[in-house]
Design a binder for these strands. Structure first.
Lengths: 193, 193
DNA sequence: GTCTATAACGAGATAGAC
DNA sequence: GTCTATCTCGTTATAGAC
């Protein structure tokens, strides 16, 4: 009789995913151009050619990084829209995504890639722009008012706040700025904390 | 009789300044780690060792870049404080500095260095943090209200807005966000444009 | 001050064995 | 799918002539 196909151990991901995990963390910390195949290989205990087997070029690795990051990011936005009620609460949840990134000592992947924009391959550039467009579209949708500039203001402030608070190693700064931002956008009650 | 010492031609700067000029533009476009001595040497029509004569190491070049950029930046802030009257007008002038950077297709030097923060030598890190601290202090001083978080909100938003508008090649986006930002901080009249 | 020449290293990438 | 070995190129930096 044939053996039954069982699910693999939940904690051990396939190699490609493990590569993406390490690469994502390193890129969000140092930037795409300051992460090498050698850095990733050492952490995983494999050699550089092994990485090239899974991602032919560094550009291909970059493409895969943004694709996975974006997919997960917008899944979170879908969940917020489905589970959270009210503009203020939804914005707080949105801010929470950025706060979690900062708490991990990282920048938003597409934020740090935006800073490196001029040095990126064309496909990565488009994917970065797409990330911001979709963020903006989501914010416009959940905001009650019609001003599209509010969505841009929110994105720009949060991306800048993460970048600077990370350099200052001061997550409290991020929290205070985000509170002031959200309060100015949704003039209702103050932060319930 | 001895010859009179005349002022050098105004347009031709000394070599060290010329190196800083080219390096500054390249770093504000691509980031510190993506600018090489070779890039700078080619533009100036000199060789790499010539650059090393003026700036022993790349870290020393980076230190000099931030020092000059900061000095000029805070000179501008001094001038605004001396020549411009009123919170709104001063903030508009402050925003104008960032708008000019964006118009040149650049990021704020310390903004792009903040994104690269984890890879910078220690002295450059301190200088970057100092830049933001002094910006914050200046904003707190010219603002009428006591909220220090407002100063942080302004810096973070402008830095993020420059970063993203540059990637999107959309300076109009920057202008609209900045207008919304300043209006929310100084609830007086709308943009006089 | 600027040059030629070169050292010493790390990058991304490929060939081919296992 | 992962390895060893290697290639080619770019990087910062230095020695020493002019």
């Amino acid at each position: 009789m044939s053996s039954v196909t069982v699910a693999p151990p939940a904690v051990v991901r396939d190699t490609a995913s493990q590569i993406l995990d390490v690469a994502e963390r390193l890129v969000q910390s140092r930037g795409f151009n300051d992460v090498s195949y050698a850095d990733i290989a050492v952490e995983l205990g494999v050699t550089k050619p092994s990485l090239h087997y899974h991602f032919r070029s560094k550009a291909a690795l970059g493409d895969a990084l943004i694709a996975r990051y974006s997919a997960r990011f917008f899944e979170q936005l879908d969940r917020i829209e489905a589970d959270v009620v009210g503009v203020r609460a939804r914005l707080d949840a949105y801010v929470g995504i950025y706060a979690a990134v900062l708490a991990a000592g990282r920048m938003c992947l597409c934020g740090i890639l935006a800073a490196e924009y001029q040095t990126l391959p064309e496909k990565m550039r488009s994917a970065v722009l797409d990330f911001f467009d979709r963020n903006e579209a989501w914010l416009e949708r959940i905001l009650d008012e019609s001003s599209r500039d509010t969505a841009k203001l929110i994105i720009d402030t949060l991306e800048g706040a993460v970048m600077i608070a990370r350099a200052q190693n001061d997550s409290d700064r991020f929290d205070r700025v985000a509170e002031r931002l959200v309060s100015s956008v949704v003039p209702g009650v103050a932060d319930p904390r």
